[in-house]
Amino acid sequence: MPPIAGQNNWSFVIAAYAITWITIIGYWVHVHRTLRDAQHDLDAANAAGAK
């Protein structure tokens, strides 16, 4: 096992946090887009039904 203490590993730390936030924001956007599309479909269906 290579020695780690004292070594500069900030690039790995930054990469890990970056991937975490990319995943969270990406999935967040996906969920809200799905939500908006579904709401849109429901409104359209209701409007068509009311006609």
């Binding site: 799905t34 579904a38 709401q39 479909d41 429901l42 359209a44 269906a45 209701n46 068509a48 039904g49």
Partner: peptide, 9 residues
């Protein structure tokens, strides 16, 4: 909501 939209249409 998507399920409801499907059933309504």
């Amino acid at each position: 909501i998507a399920r409801a939209a499907e059933m309504t249409s």
